[in-house]
Nucleic acid binder design. Structure first.
Length: 575
RNA sequence: CGGGGCGUGGCGCAGCCUGGCAGCGCGCCUGCUUUGGGAGCAGGAAGUCGGAGGUUCGAAUCCUCUCGCCCCGACCA
């Protein structure tokens, strides 16, 4: 490709509204332009990178036995009503009507459509297993799109769906996809980690997220410093066997009777600890949750936070939400801030860390009052203990008990065992070898393509610009024709360019009528791995300069050796 | 949904408080000079100041409404 013919509008200045480096560089390097909030156009350079990633994905998906399809982005409401998600999905689902007044949505995901297809076409166990995927634009009306391609509203996603005869085979399909994902992200040159993720209330299933490690990542990951345990924050378990025992012990003598203390307008844990002069780990927070069925109270230590997902999974309900003020008053007789377990008529669940606590401080269920010297068993009872809170950095690895580490990541892929959730809702069945009708067992597997590109840049850049990994670089080599008006420079640059093209190496020839400095700056910015500088100075001694973007390593190479030298990089590619 | 900020040539911004010729840097076009890390000089094109309404002799500037973009927050009792 000739730069003079390429639509590649680079920018010298960093755009004001781009916060993260990948977003800034994608705009500066002329890869993307914003159309409107969370919606972007891919310019030629950006599209090439996207297509590189897509090619890697296709190769690995096909290798794993999946077949490509392409589904519509407009989906009829009926399918979503069938699975109940028309009501559950909320405002992220962009809905609209056609001219006849029929309801439609823009697909944020395609479980319904693919399940509809498969239930109509698959009859027999002989048709299974089946794995279908597509690379397609999704639309999710995010509350707050940000960070460019990292969290857009319209975005490119690879989504795959597996269909198997039973759980055991579905699990095999799952691990096949897991392995394919490992290969995909390795080939993209990313440093990543597969972490255990929450899989929702539908029993027995499991899930992994593929996280690209980056400080700017939106997701918190918990990893063990010793074993290979890794999970996202929502999923990370807390093993009571490894609880730190230095918290929760009584400070004073045991057995003091519960005593009411006035706490005028003192509501938060911080206020109460300051006012009553106790440590937060001697406080118990009592939170009331609505569950769609009957409300429950959850007790956690003052310095801990309830993990609603763990609560949701424990109760086996679709949603849990903190009760509003009206409900709190109704159930406790006091406004939020003074809730306690004593005298509560609803079911009380406690986090495991409540179990060893003695002499605790709780709300009095009375406005402006708390109780001190409260003992479980003597003053109140709970109906059960469970792991109900978020892990903290001072907790230990649930597997081996060693220290854990909090890191941040960008979720680029998610593999998910769905089980029979959709096949049941939409009656996707097959006949087994006994002629008996059975539900198809499903899995689904997503990769954010644009997000993968953004994550790669997040992980591979310096102050001069992007440093593309070889595998996803828009071009492998750029040839800078420093003085295009000099016929010797021009013809030698053309010769190298043509030679590289013949060697099937994607090359960008910078033949623009620009000053050398501009060409150097742009070459650095757009992050092409190899730069070949053809200029008057070097040609005097029959040489050009070959420089690696990542290391800055520079070589003066004789004209006749250039192609061979570059081909050498591909035999053992340095990322 | 709540709070805050910003909309002024293609990009980044000043001007607004205190109403009176629409400016600066970068980019773009032309010419000359220059040419191995974002050149210099000279000349030039380009903005209904987000939109609508109002106040005023006069509005980018003041008032009302509206649209868009960005940031923060969204109840842990």
């Amino acid at each position: 490709m000739r730069y003079s013919q390429l639509f590649l509008p680079t920018q010298r200045e960093t755009p004001a509204d781009a916060e993260v480096v990948s977003h800034q560089l994608m705009i500066r390097a002329g890869m993307i332009r914003k159309l409107t909030s969370g919606i972007y156009t891919y310019l030629p350079l950006g599209l090439r990178v996207i297509q590189k990633i897509e090619t890697i994905i296709r190769e690995e998906m096909n290798r794993a036995g999946a077949q490509e399809v392409l589904m519509p982005s407009v989906q009829p409401a009926e399918l979503w009503q069938e699975t109940g998600r028309w009501n559950v999905y909320g405002k992220e689902l962009l809905r609209f009507k056609d001219r006849h007044g029929r309801d439609y949505c823009l697909g944020p995901t395609h479980e319904e459509v693919i399940t509809d297809l498969v239930r109509k076409e698959v009859r027999s166990y002989r048709d299974l297993p089946l794995n279908l995927y597509q690379i397609q634009n999704k639309f999710r009306d995010e509350i707050r799109p940000r960070f460019g391609l990292m969290r857009g509203r319209e975005f490119i996603m690879k989504d795959a769906y597996s269909f198997d005869i039973d759980e055991e085979h579905a699990e095999k399909s799952y691990w096949k996809m897991y392995d394919a994902y490992v290969r995909i992200f390795e080939r993209c040159g990313l440093k990543f980690k597969a972490v255990e993720a929450d899989s929702g209330a539908i029993g027995g299933t499991f899930s992994h997220e593929f996280m690209v490690l980056a400080d700017t990542g939106e997701d918190a990951i918990v990893t063990c410093t010793s074993c290979d345990y890794a999970a996202n924050l929502e999923k990370a378990e807390i093993n009571p066997d490894y609880a730190r025992d230095r918290y929760g012990k009584p400070l004073g003598s045991k057995g003091l009777p519960a005593e009411k203390r006035g706490t005028p307008n003192i509501k938060t844990v911080e206020e109460v600890t300051r006012f009553l002069r106790v440590r937060p780990d001697r406080l118990v927070k009592t939170l009331i949750f609505e569950t769609g069925k009957e409300p429950v109270a959850v007790l956690v230590r003052g310095d801990h936070e309830v993990n609603p997902i763990k609560l949701k999974n424990l109760l086996g309900v679709e949603t849990v939400a903190l009760a509003d003020e009206t409900l709190v008053r109704e159930l406790t007789g006091a406004p939020p801030g003074f809730t306690g377990p004593l005298g509560l008529k609803i079911r009380i669940l406690a986090d495991n860390d409540i179990r060893p606590m003695e002499d605790m401080v709780v709300g009095a269920n009375e406005e402006d009052a708390h109780l001190v010297h409260v003992y479980r068993g003597r003053d109140f009872d709970v109906s059960g203990f469970a792991d109900l809170r978020f892990i903290t950095p001072s907790d230990r690895c649930p597997r081996c008990g060693k220290d854990i580490l909090f890191i941040r990541g960008i979720e680029v892929g998610h593999v998910f065992k769905l089980g029979e959730k959709y096949s049941q809702a939409m009656s996707a069945t097959y006949l087994d070898d006994q002629g008996k009708e059975r539900l198809i067992v499903m899995g689904c597997y997503g990769i954010g393509v644009g997000r993968t590109a953004a994550a790669a840049i997040e992980q591979n850049h310096d102050q001069d610009g992007i440093i593309f990994p070889w595998s996803i670089a828009p071009f492998q080599v750029t040839v800078l024709m420093l003085q295009p008006e000099d016929s010797e420079v021009a013809s030698q640059a053309e010769k190298i360019y043509n030679g590289l093209k013949e060697a099937n190496i994607e090359t960008l020839l910078d033949d623009r009528d620009e000053r050398p400095g501009v060409k150097f700056k742009d070459a650095d910015l757009i992050g092409i791995p190899v730069r070949i500088t053809v200029g008057e100075r070097g040609l005097k001694s029959g040489q050009v300069e070959i420089r690696l973007r990542r290391t800055g390593e520079t070589d003066e190479v004789r004209l006749e050796n250039v192609i061979e030298k570059v081909r050498g990089f591909f035999r053992e590619p340095v990322s």
